[in-house]
C-alpha cells in the first residue's frame, strides 16, 4: 500500500507512538494516507482504539519481523 507520509515510532512505547501518530496526521491532508512503523505491541490495540475514537480510518495493520506497520487514512 502506498502512503503519503511515513512516521517511524520504532523503539518508542505507550503513549509515544500515539502521540507521534497524532502529530503526523495533523501534517497531512484529508484523505491522505499515513504509514506508521512501531515496535510496541500495545500499538496494535491502541491504534485501533485511537482511529475508532478520532474518526480516522485504520486501513491496514500488519506485523513483519517484530515491526508493526499501520496504514491510516485521514478522514477527520
Amino acid at each position: 500500500m502506498n502512503s503519503d507520509k511515513i512516521v517511524d515510532c520504532k523503539g518508542l512505547f505507550c503513549p509515544m507512538p500515539v502521540v507521534g501518530l497524532n502529530k503526523a496526521i495533523k501534517e497531512i491532508e484529508m484523505g491522505q494516507i499515513l504509514e506508521v512503523l512501531a515496535t510496541d505491541p500495545a500499538s496494535v490495540p491502541d491504534f485501533r482504539a485511537w482511529t475508532m475514537r478520532t474518526g480516522n480510518e485504520l486501513l491496514e495493520s500488519k506485523e513483519e519481523k517484530g515491526v508493526y506497520k499501520f496504514f491510516i487514512r485521514k478522514t477527520k
Binding site: 505507550c14 503513549p15 500515539v18 502521540v19 501518530l21 497524532n22 485511537w50 475514537r53 478520532t54
Partner: peptide, 11 residues
C-alpha cells in the same frame, strides 16, 4: 501525564 497526553490526541 501518560493518560493526559494520550487523551488530548483523542480530542
Amino acid at each position: 501525564l501518560v493518560l493526559a497526553s494520550t487523551a488530548i490526541t483523542m480530542d
